[in-house]
Design a binder for these strands. Structure first.
Lengths: 333, 333
DNA sequence: GACATTATCTGACTATAGTCAGATAAATTC
DNA sequence: GAATTTATCTGACTATAGTCAGATAATGTC
């Protein structure tokens, strides 16, 4: 599915394996330090006199929740949750009543006291975070939260699976129609579903469709279609609005390049609409060069091309950092 | 001690407060996501059939530890630890014996079985980290661990306290002598303690000495000395070898600038030796401009100067990101 | 309308994590 | 060398977190 060590040269494969092992150790080192020092933020320190599980439930209730949802979300045993809720009820922090939709389901809401308690909890958590930050000058505070933002985004990205799907499948069609819906809104001239590539053109040797899914939900797609011998065209690059800014576009582009290389394509072209600035910036930074119009490309004002090397991604760690950064696009998006 | 919101203009103070609040929320958001998704790395998933506390003890024993140290390091009740060790002993994973130095103290070591078990534990933890990373292409894996490295360094930096100390105190002298020891090794011509600024020149209106401490241990220092009306000289900038690469030099420079501004100094000068490249790079990126020699400065080949604005740090978030980055040094060190 | 399913609750358990008050023996202080 | 301190151990507790097997009532399926 993902191709981080797909390599024919044993030496390179060896090095890639080594690099990944080191990265795992770096991640573990972070985890050790973080849980030791910041575990405070989540741990019982927040609950003060309250068990952690009760505090967690209080956090999750918010505007009122089905106990059923709560159980699933927190992964709790139904008996355990029942008792937790009962205890919070006795403390006057939550009220439970039947759901209007389903008489079996019970809904928990915060009482005024409960809301106050939750505000307190939040206050304390933010206070702890602030105390942690206040040790640093503003510029370094900003660097710290930028780093944690970035890490959070990439952790989320790592939970998204990207893989080839049958373009005529229900999932594929749903994803493409969400893509079409968005283009309809963004293109001044509108967009017609007929401009989508047919399922036949994305199957077998003719092309491929990759779909990105997070917890089973489609979060983006990208397609490639053979337009000449050795030449493929990237189509339908789309990232769900709720998954933007985490590097999914860049990853999809990488994955489709790997897939295209696997189809023995040597050149990739693509056409894009002038209103899609963020896409244009992505293509440029991923090594695509502007070219003249190369064929019938509806809704397009910009055309790009990239020659795939033997390996679509240069992982040349021994080269200068600058070169590396440019070639694989380490620059922030 | 630290100056992140030291501001005379109420409006600016307001905004600074707002910014810090937002940063706290970003940190909390990271914490929520991280503990939920990666808590796996540290949590009971590692211990498999073993309670978390036993697994933690197993991790910490390593080459053999005093139970006394272990108790302090893990913050455990002595009775509790005693029972944990007893349980691991019964499982044949650790052996305990008396300490050769102190008959009261007991030392725990891993048996062969214990070592195997620890290897297993480590294997599993690295495997989990790898599984997490393997969802990403190599370039984005690298971005992720770079972000966590950076976050770890800055979290550590936030635990370091920087403050003015009496330059004739024991702590100050120890720190300065560590500084002098290092210069003796790095300067081809050697270094004489007589070249250190006297305590008198760093006291009262004449100057100041800031020391950075982590868990009570000195990790660096920096001094300022008034050399002309309105003009101060930065001296004795030093970061402990074990605390390099986390941004402490930059922070010390910032703190001394704030301190100098508080002494109504308007210009800061400094002189540095040619072999200290990393220091020279720091001064440049913090807005210091090279100048001609300005006075008797032993062991120096480079001279720098910076004019302090009313506020030594521009926190001008509304300016272009590029400008901001340049002025406060967001560039990686 | 019989039957299966689902959401919650209750009672009875267990495991883990810890706390606290002495007891004991070695080391340190005076 | 007596008194104090320190490191560990033991026994007796408590709190938290969780599991599991039914019981009950509302819903969905046929």
């Amino acid at each position: 599915m993902t191709s981080s060590g797909d390599d024919v040269h044993p030496q390179r494969a060896q090095r890639a394996h080594h690099e990944q092992r080191d990265r795992a150790e770096r991640l573990r080192e972070f985890n050790r330090y973080y849980t030791q020092r910041v575990g405070i933020l989540s741990d019982r320190y927040l609950g003060q006199n309250r068990p952690l599980s009760e505090a967690r439930v209080l956090f999750e209730i918010g505007q009122g929740v089905d106990l059923r949802d709560l159980r699933v979300r927190l992964g709790l045993d139904s008996g355990f949750l029942s008792r937790l809720i009962r205890s919070l009820e006795r403390q006057g922090l939550v009220a439970v009543g039947p759901s209007p939709d389903d008489g079996r389901v019970r809904v928990a809401t915060l009482t005024d006291d409960g809301r106050r308690e939750l505000d307190d909890l939040n206050e304390r958590a933010t206070g702890l975070a602030n105390r942690l930050l206040s040790g640093l000058p503003a510029a370094q505070q900003e660097q710290l939260v930028s780093a944690t933002d970035r890490a959070r985004h990439l952790l989320r990205l790592s939970a998204i699976e990207v893989g080839a799907v049958d373009p005529s499948s229900e999932a594929a069609r749903r994803c493409l129609s969400a893509f079409a819906d968005e283009l309809r809104q963004r293109f001044p001239e509108g967009f017609d579903d007929a401009d989508l590539v047919s399922a036949r053109e994305l199957s077998g040797d003719a092309g491929a469709l990759l779909v990105a899914t997070e917890d089973g939900e489609a979060r983006g797609c990208v397609a490639v279609r053979v337009i000449e011998p050795d030449v493929g065209e990237i189509r339908h690059m789309w990232v769900h609005p709720g998954a933007r800014g985490i590097g999914l576009g860049r990853r999809l582009l990488h994955e489709i390049e790997v897939h295209a290389a696997g189809m023995d394509l040597r050149v990739l072209r693509l056409a894009t609409h002038g209103v899609l600035d963020e896409a244009i910036a992505l293509y440029r930074s991923a090594g695509y060069a502007a070219i003249d119009q190369y064929g019938p490309t509806p809704h397009a004002q910009h055309w790009f091309e990239k020659h795939l090397g033997r390996r679509p991604e240069t992982r040349n760690a021994s080269a200068s950092p600058d070169l590396h950064e440019r070639s694989v696009g380490l620059a922030p998006q």
